[in-house]
C-alpha cells in the first residue's frame, strides 16, 4: 500500500475507534438515565429517586388485577421475580395489557407504598405466533402442569 494511503487508512480507523470509544463512555456513564424504567426490585431496594415522576416496568402478576367497581380505577402488581410494586391507575388500559404480560407505568410513589400511575403502556415480547399455535401451547403447558401434580 502507498504510504500516503496507509496514513489516510490509519486516520480513518482512528476516527472510527475514537468516536466509538467516546460514545461508548458517554452511554456507559449515562446508563441509568438511558433505561426507560426501573424494575420493581430496584424500587423496593430504594435505588429509584423518590418524590419525582418515574417509570416502573415488570410482569403483571397473575390474579393481581382488580378493577374498582363504578370507576376506571385498576389495581395490579408488577414483578421482576425479585421485587413487587403495587400500582393504581385510573384510565383506559391498552388492549395488550394482560396478566403474565409486561407493562410499563409512569407515575409517582405514594405515601402508602403504592405507585400512582398516570400512564400504563403494554410491552410486547419478541414472540409471534398464530392463535391456534398459542392455544396448543397453552394446552400442552396445562397438561404438563397437571402431570406434575
Amino acid at each position: 500500500m502507498h504510504p500516503i494511503r496507509r496514513q489516510r487508512l490509519i486516520a480513518v480507523i482512528f476516527v472510527v475507534v475514537l468516536a466509538t470509544v467516546a460514545v461508548g463512555l458517554v452511554t456507559y456513564a449515562l446508563r441509568q438515565n438511558i433505561n426507560l424504567f426501573y424494575t420493581p426490585s430496584q424500587i423496593t431496594a430504594g435505588e429509584a429517586p423518590e418524590g419525582t415522576r418515574i417509570r416502573v416496568g415488570g410482569m403483571v402478576v397473575p390474579g393481581s388485577v382488580q378493577r374498582v367497581p363504578g370507576s376506571l380505577e385498576t389495581l395490579f402488581t408488577v414483578t421482576d421475580g425479585a421485587g413487587e410494586v403495587k400500582i393504581a391507575y385510573t384510565g383506559i388500559l391498552p388492549d395488550l395489557f394482560a396478566e403474565n404480560e409486561a407493562a410499563v407505568a409512569t407515575g409517582m410513589m405514594r405515601e402508602d407504598g403504592t405507585f400512582g400511575a398516570s400512564e400504563v403502556l403494554a410491552k410486547h415480547d419478541e414472540n409471534y405466533m398464530p392463535p391456534e399455535v398459542a392455544d396448543a401451547m397453552e394446552k400442552a403447558m396445562d397438561k404438563a402442569h397437571e402431570a406434575r401434580q
Partner: peptide, 28 residues
C-alpha cells in the same frame, strides 16, 4: 468524516434492546 463518526451509533441501535430497559421488544 461525519458518516464515519456516526458508525458508533449502529451497534448502539442494534444492541440497545439488550443493554438497557426499553419499551421496544428484543430482536425476533
Amino acid at each position: 468524516v461525519l458518516a464515519l463518526v456516526g458508525t458508533a451509533n449502529i451497534p448502539i441501535i442494534y444492541k440497545s434492546v439488550d443493554w438497557w430497559y426499553t419499551l421496544h421488544q428484543p430482536a425476533t
